Simulated scan of single mutants.
Amino acid sequence: MYRFVLDTSIFTNPDVASQFGEDEAAVGGFLDLARKVPADFFMPLSVYEELRKMRDLDPLIGYFESVVRIRSPRRSDLQIPGDFLYDFIDEVRKRIDHGLRIAEEHAKLAGAAAEMGQLLHQLRERYREALRRGILDSRGDVDVVLLAFEIDGSLVAADHGLRKWADRIGVAVVDARHFRDLLRHLVETKGAAEGVVEKSGG
């Protein structure tokens, strides 16, 4: 049985969500397909709460929770490889140093800048890019990776950083951009297998 741990990007990244439907309809489109798939779907509570802030799930709450199990990882029971934590610490340190260099560059430019507001905007964008892109930067990020690790599931995300860190810890990853095709293939495989069983039984 397949086990998929879902990140919010499946429903909030426009390029990814559109494979299931437009805007709010994407969640319903996913659920309609997922319930036919021979698989279990999970989402940590922290990620579910984040998704509910970005998408109006109220009309679909019962349906959503009947298809996707809301469950957080058992954090106190998990044993994480030490190499993973050391790699993470090294990555954070490099990003802090990089962010500091960006701040210094912009500070030097400040004296010559005619438009301080524009300079500060550029500083914020570059600093955010240096420190946050490609790294686990929220409780939800950590929860989806840990839950997939705990249940030996596949992490489904569009976020490159999530997939990279999940891979480092040995978690199977699925690029969310191809998730619909994967699910449809599983449905077709299930249908073909059931047809074989019916023929052999008949």
Rank of each mutant, 00 (worst) to 15 (best):
L78Y: 08
L78W: 09
L78H: 09
L78P: 08
L78N: 10
Q79Y: 07
Q79T: 12
Q79N: 11
Q79E: 10
Q79R: 12
Q79L: 10
I80Q: 06
P81T: 15
P81L: 08
P81G: 11
G82Q: 13
G82E: 13
G82T: 12
G82H: 11
D83T: 11
D83G: 09
D83V: 12
D83S: 15
D83K: 05
F84C: 01
F84E: 01
F84G: 00
F84Y: 13
L85N: 07
L85G: 04
L85P: 04
L85M: 13
L85S: 09
Y86L: 14
Y86G: 08
Y86N: 13
D87T: 04
D87G: 00
D87C: 02
F88C: 04
F88Y: 14
F88H: 07
F88G: 03
F88K: 06
I89S: 14
I89T: 14
I89W: 11
I89Q: 14
I89G: 07
I89A: 15
I89D: 14
I89H: 13
D90E: 15
D90Y: 12
D90R: 15
D90Q: 14
D90C: 08
D90M: 12
D90H: 12
D90F: 10
D90L: 14
E91W: 00
E91R: 06
E91V: 00
V92F: 05
V92T: 03
R93A: 05
R93Y: 02
K94Y: 00
K94Q: 01
K94V: 00
K94T: 00
R95N: 11
R95W: 13
R95T: 04
I96R: 03
I96N: 00
D97A: 12
D97L: 09
D97W: 06
H98A: 13
H98W: 09
L100T: 09
L100C: 03
L100R: 09
R101Y: 05
R101N: 07
R101L: 07
R101A: 09
R101S: 07
R101F: 05
I102S: 02
A103P: 01
A103I: 05
A103F: 03
E104W: 08
E104P: 03
E104A: 09
E104R: 13
E105D: 15
E105A: 12
A107M: 15
A107Q: 15
A107N: 15
K108T: 10
K108F: 06
